[in-house]
Design a protein around this nucleic acid. Structure first.
Length: 784
DNA sequence: CCGCTACGGGG
DNA sequence: GGGTACGTAGCGG
């Protein structure tokens, strides 16, 4: 029998040494096939002869299956090794343990003994989940599996979310929602509900119903948000307590947790459980504006959709007071957002799986470094190289202790307002450097040639032989360029995502070199990449100045230039500079801006980047200003934003000053709305546990005294009241204060004026100029 | 300045 | 058990 399927999952069965591949065929049917595979690892004895082979074959518990002699590349040398096959995957570490103390071998000469069996299978066959396969199946086992042309199939997805309630020492699940082809909320308190709510008898029945619905809906993919560490952890706990069998899988097995670095992952055989929070915090967060990675913040940014508003305490209140319909609506909305985020992100996850060659379950939980490492592992096998061993704990500790090296070059901004700005940056600076200068662990200080010296450092990299990592990166870059060309002629979402996966992987390699847990760790490689980066950006700065540009600011891989005839001059400059750069490196135009304001802020050692730009279409780009932080009141944030607008849109600092003075006046006359003065800060622990008592803690204490329940996670909304005592002592929950009682001086001096001054101080405005009555202030002139 | 602890997401 | 823990803000010393 022949089966064609999209591979979505790989694992192995404990008995025997059998890999199980799971996927989906063209007609949407689930495919699960078994295939035999032999576990093995490598050793490098000081001499290969019959004596050492006999010694290894003589190990009794467990027995070695057979030995092969193989040739593999270790570092930059070809070596003869022994490939030791075992009967069971679990035997590999045991036999390695027995061998590692052989004087002819030793610890550091055992290789690839800790690669999960199913991962080993994927690597050795160069098979990637997300690709299509054809299998010849006989007697329940696949005889032959090969890649085949991609077909179409739709993965059926479902999202879920739970609500909980603390009853004494126990946390109970009070509600579960699912969202997919079926939209449903399960709970166990009678109320008048919309028809998507189903009322069960209790928690046990709720869990049983949940299991039944998952099986009935039979999704291929299950999305949750923080579901590894919260939802499924609690579901498992409560299922054990209530003696409910959690056989939500496709093979009758129960939900199980697999141990991982920090967070255990909830695994459901036959269904890909994706905890979106993991992928978002590990990978996506770098591309997001929001600092807070809650479901609400992320949905709002990615989907433009919001959570229903409900404070933590309200959830409990809804349950206590029986307003469960509202809670059901809230819970379902969370599942809906999770579902939509999942559908948005799954194609990206599958594309990464395809590239890296590991399962979407694993890839969605990987960090940047792990993505790079598994991709390198796949390429290492393809190029007949040994995968280096994971560093031991002691080694990691030592690597951590290494003093940090010099990073990117930062040219402090020329403070003030500038006009006619061009922003240029290097396309993938570090990957291009790694590829063009052959930066790789095996090419560092090679002994085959003199090599190429790194600027500022006493290292050389080989000029004759391509290094492994540098070659892999070069492949990625070339593939990316090719894909980009294709995309320019015809846009295709799939290909676009493939391009993004390549970009993610290439860009992470520089950081990977310096990551203490790396198998291909190379501190000198990271140092050298950074040194070359500084060399190139300095070169750009120098050349730009020679061409008559004024360099306003530069950081690592970008320069901010200004001059007259900016567009014309920039285009000429780019053409000229790109001719002088090594083939793969390219300086690109990021954009032109009409105006920009730059502020230099020294915080301890490092300077923080703070600038704002406006382009021809009046789009604002704001970096480093506090317009988004919640510990500033809305009015302060609004004032800062408007001040930026005055300055950038109209080049009108004088107007900005009048505007701020007007606001200050309004505050003094209390012609202001309370909601604009409220400051939001989150309680992160119980009130009594605070030693450093900030204003929000004081406000929370006052709320508690009034009988309101306050606890961790709650966002305290407070204002500062007039009177005596420190500012903190005068923090009050905002509902209990009227505009007449707020401390206007505080809002003027500690909120509005500082927020405005962040922008205006570089234009020569003084604090007194903002507060005082009509005093004229001198405005400095900046720019060209 | 340094070292340690607790947090993140979820409810 | 084909093994194990992340990066960092914010506090206290």
């Amino acid at each position: 029998m022949k089966l064609k399927f999209l591979l979505t999952e790989a694992d192995y069965l404990n008995e025997g040494s059998t890999i199980r591949l799971t996927g989906k065929d063209e007609k949407g049917r689930t495919v699960s096939i078994l295939v035999d595979f032999e576990p093995y690892f490598y050793v490098l004895p000081n001499r290969i002869d019959s004596k050492i082979k006999e010694k290894i074959l003589g190990i009794k518990e467990p027995k070695v299956k057979r030995i092969e002699e193989v040739e593999k590349i270790i570092g930059s040398e070809k070596k003869k090794l022994l490939k030791i096959f075992t009967f069971h995957p679990q035997d590999v570490p045991k036999i390695r343990d027995a061998i590692k103390d052989f004087p002819e071998i030793g610890h550091e000469n055992c290789f690839e003994y800790s690669i999960n069996f199913y991962r080993r299978y994927l690597i050795d066959n160069q098979f990637s989940p997300g690709e299509w396969f054809e299998a010849d199946v006989e007697g329940g086992k696949a005889k032959k599996i090969r890649k085949t042309a991609p077909k179409k199939t739709k993965l059926k997805a479902m999202a879920f979310d739970i609500e909980t309630y603390e009853e004494g020492p126990e946390t109970k699940i009070i509600m579960v929602s699912i969202y997919g082809s079926l939209k449903k909320v399960l709970t166990y308190k009678e109320s008048s509900y919309p028809d998507y709510v189903e009322v069960l008898k209790g928690e046990k029945e709720l869990l049983e119903r949940f299991v039944k619905l998952v099986k009935k809906e039979d999704p291929d993919v299950i999305y949750g948000y923080n579901s590894d560490s919260f939802d499924f952890t609690l579901i498992k706990e409560r299922a054990e307590k209530n003696k409910v069998k959690l056989d939500v899988s496709r093979d009758g097995s129960e939900l199980k947790f697999t141990r991982r670095a920090r967070i255990s992952s909830a695994e459901i055989h036959g269904r890909v459980h994706i905890d979106l929070f993991g992928f978002i915090s590990n990978i996506l967060s770098a591309q997001l504006q929001t600092e807070v990675l809650g479901l609400g913040e992320v949905s709002s940014e990615i989907l433009g959709d919001e959570k229903l508003e409900m404070q933590l305490e309200e959830i409990f209140e809804c349950w206590r007071k029986g307003n469960v319909a509202k809670l059901a609506e809230y819970c379902l909305k969370d599942s809906e957002l999770t579902y939509k985020l999942g559908e948005f992100l799954l194609p990206q996850i599958l594309e990464l799986s395809k590239l890296v060659g590991q399962t979407p379950f694993d890839v969605s939980r990987m960090t940047y470094s792990q993505i790079v490492e598994w991709y390198l592992s796949k390429r290492a096998f393809a190029t007949n190289r040994i995968i280096p061993n994971q560093p031991k704990f002691e080694e990691i500790k030592e690597r951590r202790m290494r003093s940090p090296y010099v990073g990117g070059f930062v040219k402090e901004p020329i403070e003030g307002l500038h006009k006619n700005i061009a922003v240029l940056d290097f396309r993938s600076l570090y990957p291009s450097i790694i590829a063009s200068h052959n930066i790789s662990p095996e090419t560092l200080n090679c002994n085959c040639c003199k090599g190429e010296k790194v600027p500022e450092l006493e290292y050389n990299f080989c000029k004759k032989k391509k290094g492994f990592v540098s070659a892999v990166i070069e492949e990625i870059i070339k593939k990316r360029i090719e894909i980009k060309k294709k995309l320019r002629s015809k846009f295709d979402e799939k290909i676009h995502l493939e391009e993004k996966a390549l970009k993610i992987t290439a860009n992470a390699t520089y950081g990977y070199f310096a990551f203490p847990g790396s198998k291909w760790y190379c501190f000198e490689c990271a140092q050298s990449s950074a040194a070359w980066g500084r060399f190139y950006i300095r070169k750009i700065i120098k050349e730009a100045e020679k061409e008559g540009f004024s360099v306003i600011y530069s950081d690592t891989d970008s320069v901010f230039l200004t001059s007259d005839k900016i567009k014309e001059k920039t285009k000429k400059f780019l053409t000229k500079i790109n001719k002088s750069l090594p083939g793969i490196m390219e300086l690109e135009l990021q954009g032109f801006y009409n105006r920009g304001i730059f502020v230099s802020t020294r915080v301890g050692k490092g300077a923080k980047k703070r600038y704002a730009l406006i382009d021809e279409k009046k789009n604002l780009t704001i970096r480093g200003f506090e317009t988004v932080r919640r510990d500033w009141c809305n009015l302060a944030k609004e004032v800062q934003r408007n001040v930026l607008k005055f300055v950038l849109e109209k080049d009108d600092a004088q107007g900005a000053v009048s505007y701020v003075k007007d606001i200050v006046e309004k505050i003094k006359q209390r012609k202001i709305e309370m909601k604009d003065l409220v400051i939001y800060e989150q309680l992160t622990k119980q009130i009594k546990d605070y030693e450093q008592i900030g204003p929000h803690v004081i406000a929370a204490q006052k709320m508690k005294q009034r009988g309101e329940s306050v606890g961790p996670g709650m966002i305290i909304m407070f204002v500062i009241k007039k009177g005596s005592g420190s500012i903190s002592q005068r923090a009050e929950p905002f509902e209990s204060v009227s505009v007449e009682d707020v401390d206007t001086d505080y809002y003027v001096n500690n909120q509005i004026v500082p927020a405005a001054m962040r922008v205006l101080s570089v234009l020569g405005v003084t604090e007194d100029g903002l507060k005082g009555e009509g005093k004229q202030m001198g405005l400095k002139r900046f720019g060209v």
